[in-house]
Amino acid sequence: MIMTEMLEILRHIPKVELHCHLECAVQFTTLLDEHRRQGIPLPFTAEADLREYFLIEEPVDDFQRYLLAIERHQVIFGDVSAISRVAEETVISKAADNVKLFELRYSPTYMSRQTKGRLSQSTIHEAVKAGVTRGVAAALNNNQDIHVFLICCDHVIFKHSPWDADGFKDSVNFALHHRADFVGFDVACTEADMNPCSPFLDRLKDAGLGITVHAESDMEPEKIRFLVDRLHATRVGHGLHVPEDSAIFAYLKDKRIHMEEAPTANVRSGEVENLQNHPIQRYIQGGFSVSINSDDPGILDHTLTDEYHVLHHTFGYDMATFLKINLLALHSSFAAEDVKQKLLDLYFVRNLKTSVS
Rank of each mutant, 00 (worst) to 15 (best):
Ala48Val: 14
Asp229Ile: 09
His12Leu: 10
Phe226Arg: 03
Ile157Leu: 11
Arg113Tyr: 09
Thr115Lys: 11
Thr45Ser: 15
Val16Gly: 08
Thr123Trp: 05
Val80Lys: 11
Ile292Glu: 01
Ala262Glu: 07
Thr354Phe: 14
Asp345Trp: 10
Tyr106Ser: 05
Arg268Tyr: 03
Ala25Asn: 01
Thr354Met: 13
Gly298Val: 03
Gly287Glu: 06
Leu119Pro: 02
His19Thr: 01
Glu222Gly: 06
Met3Asn: 13
Val60Ile: 01
Phe54Cys: 11
Ile284Tyr: 07
Leu7Gln: 12
Val172Ala: 02
Phe322Val: 04
His19Gly: 00
Arg268Thr: 04
Leu68Glu: 10
Leu328Tyr: 13
Ile40Met: 08
Thr4Pro: 09
Asp218Lys: 14
Pro196Phe: 11
Asn173Leu: 14
Leu7His: 07
Gln285Gly: 09
Leu204Tyr: 03
Thr190Gln: 09
Thr234Val: 10
Asp202Asn: 06
Thr264Ser: 14
Leu328Trp: 09
Arg36Gly: 02
Asp164His: 04
Gly167Ile: 06
Glu261Ile: 14
His155Gln: 08
Cys20Phe: 05
Asp296Phe: 06
Pro43Phe: 14
Ala188Met: 12
Thr234Glu: 08
Val228Tyr: 03
Ser93Leu: 12
Gln144Trp: 03
Thr90Lys: 02
Val172Thr: 05
Val290Pro: 04
Val356Gly: 09
Ser217His: 08
Val183Pro: 01
Asp164Val: 04
Arg85Cys: 08
Gly237Glu: 06
Asn326Ile: 07
Val60Leu: 00
Ala180Arg: 15
Val310Lys: 03
Arg105Val: 13
Val213Arg: 00
Asp345Thr: 08
Tyr308Lys: 02
Val272Gln: 01
Gly237Trp: 00
Ile211His: 02
